[in-house]
């Protein structure tokens, strides 16, 4: 695991109830490792649900 990833994860785990944040961070980091910042931007876009998408 990279130092940065580990350092971020350590900080998140030190806070209470941040399990979902840690999961999100792992997704973000894996994405960054695979495709860089652009891939993370795409991931953020995929997580974003806009009101225009209402059925």
């Amino acid at each position: 695991m990279s130092e940065l990833s580990e350092a971020v994860e350590t900080r998140l785990l030190a806070e209470k109830d941040q399990g979902e944040t840690v999961t999100l961070w792992r997704r973000v980091w894996a994405c960054y490792e695979q495709g860089g910042a652009e891939a993370v931007e795409e991931l953020m876009g995929s997580l974003l649900v806009l009101p225009e998408e209402r059925a």
């Binding site: 971020v8 944040t21 974003l48 649900v49």
Partner: peptide, 27 residues
Amino acid sequence: KTATAMEGLGARVERIRLALLDAKEEL
């Protein structure tokens, strides 16, 4: 529910941003 989920995601992203800056500064 979706708004709350978006807020939650925003809050999690903000925590990650803060952790990133903190980790960056430390590293």
